[in-house]
Design a protein around this nucleic acid. Structure first.
Lengths: 218, 218
DNA sequence: TTATAAGTTTAAGCGGACTTAAATATATAA
DNA sequence: TTATATATTTAAGTCCGCTTAAACTTATAA
C-alpha cells in the first residue's frame, strides 16, 4: 500500500516531467526539499513496487501504473481546489496548500461525490484541467506562456502555475487573474522580461514569471 | 508540533474518558489497536509536551491544553461529517471513517469556512454536538441510553455512538435512525437485552447495543 | 492475606524516511 | 581530451512509532 510520502513523490515527478517524459533525481530532491540520498532510497522502493522505471544514474520515468496514480492525485487535488475556492470562497492563492493535505486524505468515492456536487468542473481555480475518473484529461485550448508572445499581441489569461511558491499572490497583486486581457508592449531582449498593459496599467514582469502564466492569443 | 498519531491519541483519550475524566492506558491501547508499550511511550511524549497529566501506573488525564486540542479535533471531525452527509449525501454509517482522515488535514480556517457554508450546524449526523471555535459545546437535551428506559416507555432516538465499529450499519438495518420513535416492550433481566417496537416491528437488541443508542423520553 | 491475574513499564529491536559524509559516475567546459 | 564541477549512490547513523519479551506493579478474587 502506498503512503503519503510516496504519493508526494509520484505527483512531484508527474508535475515536473520534461518534454521526454522524464525527470532527474536531483530536480525531484529540489522540489521535495529533501536530500538526493533520500530520493535514491525512495526510487528503489517505487521501482520495486512498479510505479517508476528506475535505473542507476538514469533519468526517471513513470510506469503506466505510476502515471495513473499521479493523475488521480492531480484529480483529487484539483477537485478539492475547486471546492475550496468556489464553494467556500477561499482565495485562489491559498487553495493549493490546503488541497495538498486533503488530496492524501480522501477516498475515490468522496472525490467522485465532490465532483458531482461541483457539477463536473473542467478546470481548477488556476486554469488547470481536471482528469476524469479514468485519468483522461480534456485537451484544452492551445495556450502559450507569455514569453512566447510578441510585441503588440493581445491575449487572455487562461492558466497560472500554482506549483510555484508565492507566484499566485504576486500575480494577484499586479492585477492578473483568469480571463484577464493583456497587451504586450515590449519584450526586453537582455533579460527576457516583458512589458505589458493590464487594466490600462503598465506592468513589467520578469521572464521567470512570464513563463508561468499561460494565455490564449486574441 | 503535534502530528497525526498524537492527534489520534488525544481524540481517543477524550472520547473515552470515564466519569472522573480519566482513562487507563490499557483502554487506550485497545481503542487504538496498538500495544500497551507503545502507549506508555507516547504518553511520556504527550506529557512532556503538556497535553496530558501522566504518572507511572496512574490513570491519564488531559491538561486543559490537551482538552482544547481534542475538542478542536472533535469539531473538525463533526463538521466534516455534516458536510459529507448533508452536502454530498454520504450515508451516515460511512462518514465517520472518511472524517477521521480529513480531520487531520484541514486548517482551522478551512473548518471555519466549512462551518459557515453549512450554516452552523449544531449536531453531526449521529446526533453529537459540534463544539464552537472556542471549544464550547452546547448543552443538549437530557438524553439517556436505551438501557435506562423502562417497560412501556416511549422515546425518540437522539444520538447513536459512531465510534463503535459496525454499530451504525447494524442499527440502520434494524430500522433505527435519528428522530425515530421507539417503544419498550420488555427488558430481559438475564442478559440485559431490550425488546422494543420500531415502525410496528418487534426488535430485540443486546444490552451492549442499547447502551450506545441515546434517546429522549416522550 | 495471599495467590493469581491483569495492567504497566522497561529493554531491545525493527522498518521507514530522512540526514551527512564519502565514494563513484556523469556532464561540462577549458 | 582532460580537468573540474555536478549529480548520484552508498554507507552509516538518527528519529519516530511501533513490536515482543521480560520485569515489575497494581487489582481481584480465593
Amino acid at each position: 500500500m502506498i503512503n503519503i510520502s510516496q504519493e508526494d513523490y509520484l505527483t512531484t515527478i508527474y508535475r515536473n516531467l520534461d518534454d521526454a517524459g522524464e525527470i532527474k533525481p536531483n530536480l525531484l530532491a529540489v522540489k521535495l526539499e529533501i536530500s538526493n540520498a533520500a530520493v535514491t532510497d525512495m526510487l528503489r522502493k517505487l521501482s520495486r513496487d512498479g510505479f517508476v522505471d528506475y535505473q542507476k544514474y538514469k533519468s526517471i520515468k513513470l510506469t503506466s501504473e505510476g502515471e495513473s496514480y499521479a493523475k488521480n492525485m492531480l484529480r483529487r487535488h484539483r477537485i478539492w481546489e475547486v471546492f475550496l475556492h468556489q464553494s467556500l470562497g477561499m482565495p485562489w492563492d491559498k487553495v493549493h496548500e490546503e488541497a495538498e493535505k486533503l488530496e492524501h486524505s480522501s477516498s475515490d468515492e468522496l472525490i467522485n461525490l465532490l465532483e458531482e456536487f461541483l457539477e463536473y468542473p473542467e478546470v481548477d481555480p488556476h486554469g488547470y484541467p481536471i482528469p476524469d475518473k479514468n485519468g483522461k484529461i480534456k485537451k484544452s485550448k492551445s495556450v502559450v506562456a507569455i514569453t512566447e508572445l510578441n510585441e503588440n499581441d493581445s491575449a487572455k489569461v487562461i492558466r497560472v502555475n500554482d506549483d510555484v511558491k508565492n507566484l499566485l499572490s504576486y500575480v494577484t497583486k499586479i492585477g492578473i487573474s483568469l480571463g484577464k486581457e493583456i497587451f504586450i508592449k515590449d519584450k526586453l531582449e537582455y533579460d527576457g522580461s516583458v512589458l505589458m498593459m493590464i487594466d490600462k496599467k503598465e506592468v513589467n514582469i520578469s521572464n521567470k514569471i512570464a513563463s508561468n502564466i499561460f494565455v490564449e492569443k486574441i
